[in-house]
Amino acid sequence: MDCNEARQQLDQIRTGEAYDKASRAVVEHLEVCAACREEAAFMGHLAAASPKLILTAPAGLMEEVMIRIADRYDVIDTDFGPAHVGFTPKGISAVKLDVAEDGAFESFYKDRLGRSVVRGSLPETYALAVRRAIRGEKIAQPPVTLEGLTEFEQTVLVHLARIPSGEVRPYAWLAREVGRPKAVRAVGTVMARNPVPFLVPCHRLVPSTGGVGNYYYGPEMKWTLLEREGIPREDLANWKQRGVRYIGSRTTGIYCYPTCRDARRIKREHRLEFSSTEDATNGGCRPCKNCRPLSA
C-alpha cells in the first residue's frame, strides 16, 4: 500500500462509508506512516470545523420564493373582447370576460380558487388556446388545470371536456355520465361556476327539451359559440320547436342525439325523428354507443 492509494480511501474510512479488506490495509498503513496520519488528522479537523460554515440565507428569501410561485394572470384580446386569463405551471386556471379591472379579477380568483394571483405574462400557447376555443376551433387537449376545485366539480368538468366540438348534450346526460343521475341541478351549478369556460366547453350542455338554455355570459354567446363549432342555430331551434330529441337511422337501427357526429351523416331518406327514447325503441332502434342517449 502506498501513500497515494491510502489517502484516496482515508476519507471514506473516516466516515465509515467504506470498510473492507482494502480499508484494513489502509489502517495498517496508517500505523507505520506518519505523513498519512497527519493527512487523516487534517481531514478530521476539517470535518469538525466545516459545519460552522453553513450560512444563514438572507431574510426575505422565503417571501420572494412564495411571491414568485404565485399563480399569474394576464389580459388578452379575443373575439369577445378583453379576457383575463389566470394560469399556473400546470395550465390555465381561469378565463373571465366580464371584469373591467385587474383588482376585480384578483378578488374573483381568490374567492373562486382560494389562491392569490399576480400579474404575469401569459405563455403564447395558452393565449392561442383561449383564442382558438373562442373562435370555435377544435383543441385536442385544452391546457387547463382544475386545481382548487371540489372533487365533484373536477369530475363533472373532466367528463364535460369529452363532449366533442360541434355536439351538444343535455344536463341530465352529464349527471348520468358522472354517476350522479339525480344531480342535474348540481351539474348546472358547476357549469355556471366553471372557471375555465370555452376551454372546458360548458356551452355544449343544453336542456333536454332543446334550445341552448342558460349561459353565464348570456344565451346569445352560447348560440354563437355553437354556431362557430358548426351547429346551425336554425337546426337547434327547429328541433326544439318540433320536439325532436333524437334522430335514428332506418338502415342501422341506431338512434342518437341530433348533434352526434353519427346522426349527422344519416342520409335524409333514411332519417327517423323521435321525441323520446320509448319512441325510438318502439321504432326498432337501439341507442348509439358514441353519444349514449339517456333512457327515460
Partner: peptide, 11 residues
C-alpha cells in the same frame, strides 16, 4: 421545502 433547505442551498 424552502424552510428545510434554504440555508444549505444558499451556502
Amino acid at each position: 421545502l424552502v424552510a428545510a433547505y434554504k440555508d444549505r442551498l444558499f451556502t
